[in-house]
């Protein structure tokens, strides 16, 4: 009997790399949450190797990638669909929490606010260059206070009253926290105050002028933090839902999108197979000095063969690869015709 096909979703973000497998009903069968640690290629391969222990190639019906390294991941895996994080998160949330109107998503280095209407995105916003209020900042502060990030949220819930902390900028927030510590406030109150400051910052930056309607879903790595959830509930006056797979929702969304794309395209996946976890894949980059733009060109090689190039504003390095490819293809065609 043919086993039911599974769909692989991969979300490569700044802090974590998540891989999920969903079945054709959209249920999550497997979810991996790995720290990217600045090595996206290796982390993807590590995740693939883990999945390869239990699954084989022909079980995979489609692959989708998302996250800031979505292009990189798609080249390595052979993705059927490459989608931005906003669409991926929205697709996942509206499938897992039908009727959702507002999605709060806080990841490692970015935060997003997505509003939906009738199951489709109607508006969204994303934080700009500033990382205040994202997961990395919480990580950093937890480390400074010498408490684990898991404990952080628990502490906040125990607070008597949250201290007011300036959350406008992570640097100022930190000096404000130190000041409050010196004044003699308890750790719980300070941690709770920090959560409230981050929520305030999130709502001011991303929610300005927008109407946040219930049901509200909170996802992303930071959603595990009960202190943050509590602060959001306090600020918004609504119950906040945290989906079971809140940490990997981007990956779930891209798996759902992969299923949709493959079905629409006639059922064949581009997946290169789990063997990619063992391939020697190298990325290198150089600064092109042909014009004053000094673009940083990135090149991905698999076993000495060039897979992809990007980063050039003018597109000449990218095009050079495409030309080389089409020439090779026509040559191969000629040869087969000759035979």
């Amino acid at each position: 009997m043919v086993k039911d096909l599974l769909y692989l979703g991969v979300d490569v973000g700044s802090v974590s790399t998540n891989l999920v497998l969903i079945d054709k009903w959209g249920d999550v069968k497997e979810a991996l949450y790995l720290r990217t640690q600045g090595r996206p290629l290796e982390t993807i391969q590590r995740g693939l190797a883990k999945l390869a222990e239990r699954y084989d190639d022909h079980q995979i019906g489609g692959v989708g990638t998302t996250g800031s390294a979505r292009t990189l991941a798609s080249v390595v895996l052979g993705a059927d669909v490459v989608k931005n994080e906003i669409t991926a998160h929205a697709v996942a949330a509206s499938r897992l929490v039908p009727g959702v109107r507002t999605i709060l998503e806080i990841g490692g280095q970015d935060s997003k606010l997505i509003l939906l209407k009738d199951g489709v995105v109607s508006d969204f916003s994303m934080n700009t260059v500033c990382a205040a209020g994202t997961g990395s900042f919480l990580d950093q502060q937890a480390a400074r206070l010498q408490i684990s990030i898991e404990e952080f949220g628990e502490l906040a819930v125990k607070a008597n009253h949250a201290v007011r902390i300036a959350g406008r900028c992570s640097v100022f927030a930190e000096s404000d926290m130190i000041h409050k510590q010196q004044m003699g406030h308890s750790l719980e109150d300070i941690v709770a105050g920090l959560c409230e400051a981050l929520v305030r910052n999130f709502l001011n930056n991303l929610g300005k002028g927008k109407k946040l309607e219930a049901p509200i879903v909170f996802q992303g790595g930071v959603a595990a933090n009960v202190g943050m959830r509590q602060a959001f509930e306090k600020a918004l006056g609504h119950e906040i839902f945290i989906p079971e797979h809140h940490k990997v929702m981007g990956a779930v969304g891209s798996a759902l999108l992969a299923q949709e794309t493959v079905n629409r395209a006639g059922g064949l996946t581009q997946f290169k197979g789990f063997s990619m976890s063992e391939e020697k894949i190298a990325a290198n980059s150089w600064e092109c000095g042909d014009c004053p733009n000094l673009c940083e060109v990135i090149e991905i090689q698999e076993a000495g063969q060039l897979l992809a190039r990007w980063g050039d504003r003018c597109g000449k390095w990218e095009n050079a690869l495409a030309v080389a490819r089409s020439e090779a293809a026509s040559e191969a065609q000629l040869q087969t015709a000759g035979q």
Binding site: K83, N84, I86, T87, V91, V120, V121, M126, E260
Partner: peptide, 22 residues
Amino acid sequence: VTRIEAFLDLITRRKEGHLLSA
């Protein structure tokens, strides 16, 4: 790029009429 892509998705998905949720 992410914002533009998401915005175009928003428009196409809106047009397609919540195919996925249906």
